[in-house]
Design a protein around this nucleic acid. Sequence first.
DNA 1: TTTTTTATATGATTGCAATCATAAATTATA
DNA 2: TATAATTTATGATTGCAATCATATAAAAAA
Lengths: 203, 203
Amino acid sequence: MMIDIDLLLAWGATYKKLEPNEIIFNEGGVCNFYHQLVEGSVRWVNINEEGKEFIQTIIEPGECFGELPLFDGEGFAASAISNTTSLILRLHKASFHQLLKERSDIHLRFSHLLAQRIRFKFLILKELAFNDPEHRISTLLNYLKKNKKNVCSECNQLQLTRQQIADMTGLRVETVIRAMRNMHDKGDLLIKKGKVYYSDIAL
Amino acid sequence: MMIDIDLLLAWGATYKKLEPNEIIFNEGGVCNFYHQLVEGSVRWVNINEEGKEFIQTIIEPGECFGELPLFDGEGFAASAISNTTSLILRLHKASFHQLLKERSDIHLRFSHLLAQRIRFKFLILKELAFNDPEHRISTLLNYLKKNKKNVCSECNQLQLTRQQIADMTGLRVETVIRAMRNMHDKGDLLIKKGKVYYSDIAL
DNA sequence: TTTTTTATATGATTGCAATCATAAATTATA
DNA sequence: TATAATTTATGATTGCAATCATATAAAAAA
């Protein structure tokens, strides 16, 4: 989901440049903006008491993030942190609501986005519950491939580290590494010099 | 989220009576209706190959369910099965979309609902990932209490079996039973004759 | 290029929830 | 009330991912 950049600018949105690992907003905090990523990469994460991260989504350019408070009025459900140097666009909450009001087509596209987000959560949740590391990982990778997320469109290379996959599936790095090696051995995916590629033979 | 029953009827919605354990729709199936529960109880579940259920939500009277396809055009993300004798209202998809179009206030309320659903998923997901059965259960119960879901408003009694809690947290019944006994011993909740009550001393 | 940092790899051990088995208590039904 | 079915309870065992430890490889920075 993205709103046309020119439209956002016309409505008064402003750019903000981010350093790597800069906190954009914190879980529980009050939301004043609609956020859209223009360049770079942002992770949307929950961090527990021991500092361990659970990555809800890794946002790519063109996607919005942190939108829940705009629709239900509560605090941020997770924190947003830049992975790399990034550029975002922010539109004031009031302007965003006005925009939705005037443009029911955009409102509908947000409903579509929200439904898709729930769908993804349904998918991951049932995987976490039904256990089995390999299955969890392969379901996640399948979803990402299908939605062309976190993958190089030219070379088919997965743009995630084992640690990130672990943080998205609730597993430990070592478990992910071992499971993925196993999947490689079975031909479910391809690992060359540590880098992961979707094998052509389905997944 | 509920739409006023008279309004639904005016728009051509029809009632459907359900026997216990009747399948309303199946995961992956095509959606033709907006569904709203009037009486009884419905579970929204994913069922894996071995027949084990993961309960995404237990729907109570006044709530809608199976709404994702109406917003993103894909198949049902989970199956819906009646827990008890139930009564639902169904409105044809096309009418629903027309209703949304004419009533932007209702559309906004659905955005609110969708955001809340994602929020709940964020919560559960990070719990499943950060492990620890007691913590998972207590987070779920807290959420349910806060949202007055699956709880008797008069007597404060939790309206879920240990099995259902297990199916919502990805744990086994025995683990849930043991964890909840433990929580009872610590005073986090109250178990009388097997029945669970929220203790007044927070949770 | 060399050094430092980050990511991947792999073995050994452990802890804990799943599993299996069985019983008791509670609720529903005859 | 008796009987059946469901839910809760509890012990014993096991399997598997987490954890710990350490090494190697790749990428980034000096």
